[in-house]
């Protein structure tokens, strides 16, 4: 088995690891970096649970080779809170408005699609400050949720947008 040395920039932190070259970004995040917040529902690109941001763009970690990520910024749910990972005084992590709105609206039921949903929603709000309901529905159409019927998720994203 060929291990390769990889340097990834995840949630603002440089991480160097040796990983099997056929392992996906999903596997590396969860198994090598301990970032189990990124979930997996099918590993075939058919559910969206493993959505992470690469340079701010939502992609599926289950179909991404870490070697090809290069020096792009990878953001996972663990990095969603503003200043996450920072320990200096005044840089304590504060929850992202999406996290607060999701809690308030009950947009996470079982919570399993939630990390991927949050990352998709963050990318949407980063490019579209006040998305319409139709824009939200399109944006999250690659993230299956089996619990909510999506309604509370729409409301949470709208609420987070309105507070930005």
């Amino acid at each position: 088995m060929t291990k390769q040395l990889l340097t990834l920039r995840v949630n603002g932190e440089p991480r160097t690891i040796a990983a099997d070259s056929h392992h996906t970004l999903l596997e590396v995040l969860r198994e090598e970096l301990g970032l189990t917040g990124t979930k997996h529902g099918c590993e075939l690109g058919e559910c969206g649970a493993c959505t992470v941001l690469v340079d701010g763009v939502p992609v599926l970690a289950c179909l991404t080779l870490p070697a090809l990520v290069g020096d792009a910024d990878v953001t996972t749910v663990e990095g969603l809170a503003n200043g996450a990972g920072a320990g200096a005084p005044g840089r304590e992590a504060t929850l992202h408005p999406l996290q607060i709105a999701f809690a308030e609206e009950g947009a996470a039921q079982c919570g399993y699609c939630t990390p991927g949903m949050l990352m998709t929603a963050k990318a949407l709000l980063d490019t579209t400050a006040r998305p319409t309901r139709a824009q939200i529905a399109s944006a999250i159409s690659g993230n299956l949720c089996r619990c909510t019927g999506y309604t509370a998720i729409y409301e949470a994203i709208e609420k987070a947008a309105s507070r930005a």
Partner: peptide, 21 residues
Amino acid sequence: LPKVNSWAHLTGEARYADDLF
């Protein structure tokens, strides 16, 4: 009121079975 377990769900800290190593 927000669910008491929301915060774990929303930060990736909830530990589902496959998250245990």
